[in-house]
Design a protein around this nucleic acid. Structure first.
Length: 199
DNA sequence: GTGCGGATGAACT
DNA sequence: GTTCATCCGCACT
């Protein structure tokens, strides 16, 4: 079942990031459904988090969507190449977000392989935020879309991870002391967790 | 208007 | 382990 929007509309962005592990993220684009199980996430705690794009209340054309209500997508371009998919959480005016860093392929694997230009499944198909976005066909055009459907959906299929690891986030050394916070969560031992290193 | 650098990934050596 | 593709977004002039 699709997770209701109320799931995203609370203050505990780290708790939401953790709770999203084991849920299924899917897209239906051009009639093609692709999906995967979320195995790795990171929490970005709005204005107080130096690693967040909204740190200090920064409000620009790009970050505007982060200030909207919880339950919508924030997709941005990184390094000019990669589209990174986040879910906005909490309510209007609080720019919390959860970055989805990796999924384990579930449905439409042939379509994902085609989008990624690969012949068979390896962890690189969907391990990493740019990789999973490409596999699911998510681009910056999808920023602002609800994650409650119809294009982007996050569903609870009843799967609960046995063990979750909390670690430091990837690629945020510039955030200084906030880079030390354990706001990266992943399913322990899962082969599709990205190889990105925290601190 | 200009310049810098990033919440990365893949192909190299 | 290292290199490099590739381009807005943002800060500052």
């Amino acid at each position: 079942m699709i997770i209701p929007v109320s799931f995203y509309q609370n203050d505990d962005v780290a708790g939401i990031a953790r709770a999203l592990l084991g849920k299924t993220l899917g897209t239906e684009i051009n009639g093609q459904y692709t999906s995967g199980i979320i195995v790795e996430t990171e929490a970005y705690a709005g204005v107080t988090d130096k690693a967040s794009h909204a740190y200090g209340g920064r409000f620009t054309n790009r970050t505007r969507v982060m200030y909207e209500d919880g339950g919508i997508a924030y997709v941005y371009l990184c390094y000019g190449i990669h589209h990174l998919f986040n879910i906005v959480t909490h309510g209007v005016g609080t720019p919390h977000a959860v970055l989805i860093r990796a999924i384990e392929p579930a449905n439409g694997i042939d379509i994902m392989l085609q989008r990624r230009g690969k012949a068979f499944v390896t962890p690189t198909l969907t391990a990493g935020p740019g990789a999973l976005s490409a596999a699911l066909g998510i681009t910056t055009l999808h920023t602002g879309y609800p994650v409650t459907g119809p294009v982007i959906t996050i569903s609870d299929t009843g799967y609960t991870p046995e063990h979750i690891t909390a670690a430091t986030r990837v690629g945020v050394a510039y955030a200084r002391e906030d880079a030390l916070l354990p706001l990266r969560f992943y399913i322990s031992g899962n082969k599709f967790v990205s190889k990105g290193k925290g601190l």
